[in-house]
């Protein structure tokens, strides 16, 4: 699939830049061929997982027959279910916190001059740059010394709410910088109080950015493994910890289960992404806001 689309792209490419010579077309073909190869590199291992999730044995030499039984087993797996519920809860709670605090902080950074503003902004970005192992270990020792928190569900929500903050901050501040403040002034001149102005004028303009920020914070929490490894404790088992248990205990059954779960994850994200791309301009936000998710 990747191959077809990109080759087609080659044909449609406007070639203002290139001469019409033979060398040129060879070079151009090489460039496109390479691009297609890279898309394949990105996709090949994922495609392998998807294909192997429908066979009886995780091997290309003797895959056995085609089957849906790998998916059937998931229905009765209560551990899997509870880990999915845990991950959804943690991601949603932490993304809400990150979004509220991030939006407020974005206003502060773009609208006001105050002491330590630069420091505030720098520290607002740091949680996404600190290697996950370090953040996880540091927060683990810290939470262990705070009575009542300990590594737990709560600790994971707190950790992820911090981790999600920079994504909201970056996206929303960028939007606010381009926001025409005279619109707000006009509303105030017409007698609207600050809350009404915010609701009727500001919010509609920044809503897509806020939504994108929430989405990013949510996804980062959902897919995080390394921070949760240190702070989730044994009372909470997010999906990534459940999957890691299956990877390190790599029996044939576990691998087949993992392939099915991984396929469902890819499928879920494919649908969500398609929706997001058609509803809001997600690509615009992503192109400027990448990060690390080191493990």
């Amino acid at each position: 699939m990747a191959t077809e689309t990109s080759e087609a792209a080659g044909e449609e490419f406007d070639d203002r830049f290139f001469d019409r010579g033979r060398v040129e077309s060879l070079l151009q073909g090489g460039l496109y061929g390479f691009a297609v190869l890279m898309l394949l590199f990105l996709w090949l291992p994922l495609l392998v997982i998807i294909v192997l999730s429908f066979v009886e044995s995780p091997s290309v030499v003797s895959p056995g027959g085609v089957t849906l039984s790998n998916y059937g087993g998931l229905a009765g797996d209560t551990d899997l279910h509870s880990s999915v519920v845990t991950s959804f809860s943690i991601a949603t709670l932490s993304a809400v916190i990150a979004t509220v605090f991030g939006v407020l902080a974005s206003f502060a950074l773009t609208r006001y001059r105050f002491e330590f503003r630069e420091i505030y902004r720098t520290f607002g970005i740091i949680p996404m740059i600190v290697p996950g192992v370090i953040l996880g270990v540091g927060l683990r020792f810290y939470f262990q010394s705070v009575p009542g928190v300990d590594p737990s569900f709560l600790a994971t929500v707190l950790t992820h709410s911090l981790y999600g903050l920079p994504f909201v901050l970056l996206i929303v501040t960028a939007r606010l910088y381009t926001f025409d403040e005279s619109l707000e002034e006009a509303a105030r001149d017409l007698g609207a109080d600050p809350l009404t102005t915010f609701r009727d004028v500001t919010l509609p303009v920044i809503a897509p950015a806020v939504g994108a920020g929430f989405l990013f914070a949510w996804v980062r929490s959902f897919e995080d493994f390394i921070r949760a490894l240190f702070v989730s404790g044994i009372s909470a088992t997010p999906l990534t910890q459940w999957m890691y248990g299956k990877i390190t205990k790599a029996s044939v059954d576990n691998l087949l289960t993992l392939n099915a779960v991984s396929t469902l994850v890819v499928l879920g994200i494919a649908v969500a992404l398609a929706v997001a791309m058609n509803v809001g301009n997600v690509t615009g936000y992503v192109a400027g806001t990448v990060d690390d998710d080191e493990e």
Partner: peptide
């Protein structure tokens, strides 16, 4: 949480399973 604790984790068939 350690997957490498002395000796025994091998006998528990699934990790951190909640009863």
């Amino acid at each position: 949480m350690s997957r490498r604790d002395t000796v025994d984790e091998n006998r528990s068939t699934s990790s951190r399973r909640v009863s």
